[in-house]
Design a protein around this nucleic acid. Structure first.
Lengths: 245, 245
DNA sequence: GTCATTTTTTGACGATCCGTCAATACTGTC
DNA sequence: GACAGTATTGACGGATCGTCAAAAAATGAC
């Protein structure tokens, strides 16, 4: 009985603590979105969760770790989506398009993520976080990379893609990743897009990704398969918001 | 005589002030590189230029404006390089490759720029700067865009490039810009690149750009023209460090 | 050269916010 | 209810931003 009581008490405490961590992150995320990086403030977070500042510091070594934790949350979700996408039926390039659809769904449902990621990537912030937290984020990145590189490998093996001599699957993925990362960065931070005549940058990103894979000669080419329709459909079928997170 | 003396005195003052502004930016740039964003500090800048903090605030409304000014310096240089590149001899795609070479040279000689740009793009920093300063930066961005879009236009006119129905020159440029922006961001901030097997991201970026333009079917294709050798050569001929800045 | 006036420079100061830690409150055990 | 161990608190020291009244320097009229 004693042990049992102790255990339940322990686990209630544990649950309390765990839920408080989630609470802190929820509040931090909202404040970050509402007031920007410079408006994110430990005292305000403390006031809002109705715990003192000292308690927050039992969960996170410093302000920067909260940011890294936010980024990690999002990256773990993305990784799960990518893995699910990579399991799709069909030839490798179609599976790659499925990953593309997952990436689109991710930014649509986690639009805050790019703000957070951008902030975290600023070197002096990154350097203030503990190696443990960095490790987790880097692990997500590596595994996202590995998941997509595997698809390219499959394509090389089954002959639907022939890479030029001296070039790796990793390079193709680097291209896709860059295109995605750059388009998101520009979309979220450039104030001149609309007046320049780019009304739908997300659609342009998708188009350019297909052009690039066509450039690699990855079959089936976009002239032989309607990736556009496919991605729209798969986004609704597999990556609606209620299907994850 | 009086007027003349007054005028010279005035312009000496003016020159003094102008040179001090450059001095502030030089010191700020160095401190930013050495100590990161969080290490950039008004008191330290003041100490190093041997003027008081108050004097710095006569040049820049706040810390963020210094960052924007640094970014603007770099962007103006890049614009000049792009314009020079766009004037190159040859068919449009070769001129586009020249711009690519200029972009490469830019990051090689202004490696600090991406750090600055990244910091500036964080929304809450951007919002603290004055409309005037923002205007200048946005103007640079627009003009870079316009310069490169013009090349694509020329290609469409001379028939070396045929854009798919419903797609603009702006979309192609958005693709190139995204690829460039994303590759730079990743290269400068990812800690997992080397272990993933990307030993030379700059070379991979160049390769992917050519693949993408091949995907657009922009003649001459990279199978018909050695863009790699051309870009290496043009970088030495036109964009050595001593030829600008 | 002197002195009143204008401009420039200064650095002490108030305000903000981070992260710490000694003091306090809480929890479970005997 | 006393006690040991743990959790929580918020006042505090330290760092930095941006301001502003006062000091210093420059100007220009005589």
């Amino acid at each position: 009985m004693t042990a049992s009581t102790a255990t339940t008490a322990e686990s209630r405490k544990q649950r309390e603590i765990r839920s408080r961590e989630a609470q802190i992150l929820d509040v931090a995320r909202r404040q970050l979105l509402e007031r920007g990086y410079l408006g994110l403030n430990m005292d305000r977070i403390a006031a809002e969760i109705e715990y003192s500042k000292g308690t927050i510091y039992q969960h996170f070594r410093n302000k920067e770790e909260i940011l890294v934790a936010l980024a990690t949350q999002a990256l773990e979700t993305r990784l799960a989506m990518f893995r699910s996408a990579a399991d799709a039926e069909g030839p490798p390039r179609v599976r790659m398009a499925t990953v593309g659809a997952a990436a689109e769904a991710f930014v649509e449902h986690f639009s805050h993520h790019f703000l957070v990621e951008q902030v975290v990537r600023v070197s002096s912030i990154w350097e203030k976080t503990s190696p443990d937290r960095r490790e987790v984020m880097e692990g997500c990145e590596r595994q996202c990379m590995a998941t997509t590189v595997a698809i390219v490998h499959d394509a090389v093996v089954d002959g639907s893609l022939r890479l030029p001599d001296g070039h790796d699957p990793e390079e193709l993925i680097f291209g896709m990743w860059s295109l995605y990362q750059g388009a998101q960065t520009i979309t979220h931070t450039s104030h001149t897009l609309a007046e320049i005549g780019l009304s739908n940058p997300l659609a342009s990103l998708r188009f350019n990704q297909n052009v690039m894979l066509d450039g690699y000669g990855w079959a089936p080419l976009s002239s032989d398969f309607d990736y556009h329709a496919y991605m729209d459909r798969i986004k609704l079928d597999r990556f609606r918001h209620d299907q994850f997170a």
